[in-house]
Structures are given as structure tokens and as C-alpha cells.
Write a protein that binds this DNA or RNA. Structure first.
Length: 352
DNA sequence: AAATCGTGGGA
DNA sequence: TTCCCAAGATT
């Protein structure tokens, strides 16, 4: 049995020098990375595609050019700017982290993983990403791309998340001297463009000859993942109330949990066994309701939601119930409404 | 340590 | 339609 030479980072870095993607948050050749932009982009990119992040990143750096601007912004403005991007705890932690960096660290981000890990919203991946990309200090950023590339390159067949330790060891073993940032970004570019989840383009991969996964014909089956859970369906009733002047009744959801801190229309609880025939009991005020045709369907990570929409018209002098407020129609788009609520609103408007 | 936490796009 | 999943963190 003749063993092939071990993979090393030089093949990857040469490939990266020619094929790296141009991204809004990425320093161009010769530019010095801005830790604020690196941090912001890494938080946004958690479980989120590059395409989805781009417009949000541009919006944020325009509205909040540095960590002080973000720290000093009202939380409502931050949540509003984040609305639609999902995983809203990221926005709350982002704001908390900005305040901490601005007011406790004088606006300077820590340059090592241990200190970064103490900050809200920064976990093992993001700490490694900031350390390597923003400061070019030795660290690896193990994300989904790196898991895929390493399990294939070394034919690691143990399932995730258990195999993560081996993935990290392998990535560390390849870490080049002096180019930690490029190495991290090169692995992500490789995973995003060549070592893709389905139909990897092995023929143009810089590691083609050395890749044990490809040699064994199992590359596309890696990484092995635990079987996914079934997604239950929850039901609920939601109430879109329009005052006679067009204002709409809105509440702010509790600071933590699903859609925490985001704006919403008053609704019942969302449960698998919700009894729609008793929806009126969950209405925020007594009105003459019209139940709209159809339902609003929305898919969350761990359940699917079917919302039945009720619309009602309130008097000009109707007071907003405790914890709720009237939002003038022309300002409704300025609210921190998550996608599911915008879906409800357009469903209601189309039938009013 | 298993659950929780969004969204939109592509196969 | 349905399924998959994308630069994970938190509890």
C-alpha cells in the first residue's frame, strides 16, 4: 500500500489567491481588515446565506458605521434593521456586544479566542473567525463548510456533531504560518463553490488528488448527520385590527424566545391542539370579527405554523390594550416586523 | 446534551 | 410539493 502525500494548505492558498470571492465584508488584497465589519458579518452569516446577508450588511454599515454608532442606537432601531433576517437573538446579542466593546473595551475588539468567547453572541466558530480573519492570528473557524471539507478530505465517517473534534484537529493540522485569515476564508470559499453539499466539483478541486473521500467514492455522502426530527404543525389565531384612521394594533413580543423582542400582531398561543372554535376568547378586544379565507403558512426551524387571520375595525377612540400600541398605517413598515408578521399583514390587506 | 431559534432559495 | 439547508449560539 503506497500512501499519498499528506494534504497541506499551499494548494488551497494558491487556489484562493486566484479564485477568492469578492464580498462586501471581505478586505481586498492589501487592505487591512476592519474587526467591526468582520464581527458584524460573521454574526449575520450564522446559519444564513451570503445572498441573504448582503443587503443587511450594507444597511447596517451605512446606518451604524462603527461599533459606537451601533452601541448608541436604540434597540428598537437595531431590531427593525434586523427584521427579516431571522434568529433574532443574534440582533439582541449583537447590540449587547457592541455596548460592551464600545464602553468596556474603548471600541477595540479582543484579538484572541478566549476573550472573544466571553462576549454575547460569539461562540467557538465566531471567535475563531474573528481571531483569524480580523487579526490574522492562528485560529481555525470550524463552520459547516469546514466540517464538510475536512470530513471529505480525510474521509471522517463518524456522524456530526460528534466528529467535530476530529474536524477541528484536522483543520488545525493544516493551518499555515502567517496566513490564518486567508486559510479560514479559503476553506469557506472552497466549501461554498467546489466542495458543495451536493454534486461537488471534485475535478477542479485543488485537493482532488489527496482527497480520501473522493478516492473512496464517498465524498458526496459526507459529512454524516443524525437523522432529522419531524416538524410538527402548530395552529393559532391572529388578529389584525385596523382603527378607523388606518392605524394598526401592534405589540412587542417578550425579549426572549421565539421572535423575541420583535413586533407582532396580537395572537393566540400557537399549539398543535389549538381549538380554533374558541379563537374569539383570545382576541385582544371585543369587536365584530371577520375571519379571512385561507391561512398564513410559515415554516420555522422546528415547527410549521398555520395562522387563521381575523380582521376587525376599531373606533377612533379605542384604547390600545395593555402592552399594545396603535401604529399609523404609513409607519407600519418601520416596525420590527418579522417575516411571518409581514406575511400576515399582506394577507389581511389583500382581503380588507 | 438535546432543544430551541428564521428565512428564502434551489433541487 | 417537499426536502434540504446556510460562515451557530444558547440553555
Amino acid at each position: 500500500m503506497i500512501s499519498a502525500r499528506q494534504p497541506d494548505s499551499s494548494d488551497l492558498l494558491q487556489w484562493y489567491d486566484r479564485h477568492q470571492r469578492v464580498l462586501p465584508w471581505r478586505a481586498r488584497l492589501g487592505e487591512i481588515p476592519d474587526p467591526y465589519r468582520v464581527w458584524l458579518s460573521e454574526i449575520m452569516l450564522q446559519q444564513t446565506t451570503v445572498v441573504a446577508v448582503k443587503p443587511y450588511f450594507e444597511k447596517f454599515v451605512t446606518r451604524f458605521p462603527d461599533v459606537f454608532a451601533l452601541a448608541d442606537a436604540p434597540s428598537e432601531e437595531v431590531m427593525q434593521a434586523w427584521a427579516g433576517l431571522g434568529y433574532y437573538s443574534r440582533a439582541r446579542n449583537l447590540h449587547a456586544c457592541a455596548k460592551q466593546v464600545a464602553y468596556e473595551f474603548g471600541g477595540v475588539f479582543p484579538d484572541n479566542e478566549a476573550e472573544l468567547l466571553k462576549l454575547p453572541g460569539i461562540g467557538p466558530y465566531t471567535a475563531g473567525a474573528i481571531t483569524s480573519i480580523a487579526f490574522n492570528k492562528p485560529a481555525v473557524a470550524v463552520d459547516g463548510n469546514v466540517e464538510r471539507v475536512m470530513t471529505r478530505l480525510f474521509a471522517l465517517t463518524d456522524p456530526l456533531p460528534g466528529v467535530k473534534g476530529q474536524v477541528r484537529e484536522k483543520a488545525l493540522s493544516l493551518l499555515p504560518e502567517g496566513r490564518s485569515g486567508d486559510f479560514a476564508q479559503a476553506l469557506m470559499d472552497l466549501g461554498a463553490t467546489i466542495c458543495s453539499p451536493k454534486k461537488p466539483a471534485c475535478s477542479i478541486c485543488p485537493w482532488m488528488e489527496l482527497c480520501l473521500g473522493r478516492r473512496q467514492g464517498i465524498a458526496e455522502t459526507l459529512p454524516v448527520k443524525a437523522p432529522k426530527q419531524v416538524r410538527p404543525t402548530r395552529l393559532g389565531a391572529i388578529f389584525v385590527i385596523e382603527r378607523k384612521d388606518g392605524a394598526i394594533l401592534v405589540e412587542t413580543r417578550p425579549p426572549s424566545g421565539l421572535l423575541g423582542g420583535m413586533a407582532a400582531f396580537p395572537s393566540s398561543q400557537w399549539a398543535e391542539d389549538y381549538d380554533l372554535s374558541k379563537a374569539m376568547l383570545d382576541a385582544p378586544m371585543e369587536l365584530r370579527w371577520k375571519r379571512l379565507m385561507g391561512e398564513v403558512k410559515h415554516v420555522f426551524t422546528h415547527f410549521q405554523l398555520l395562522l387563521t387571520v381575523y380582521v376587525g375595525r376599531a373606533a377612533l377612540d379605542a384604547e390600545a390594550p395593555e402592552g399594545m400600541r396603535w401604529v399609523p398605517r404609513k409607519h407600519i413598515d418601520d416596525e420590527a416586523l418579522p417575516s411571518v408578521m409581514r406575511k400576515v399583514l399582506s394577507h389581511a390587506i389583500s382581503q380588507i
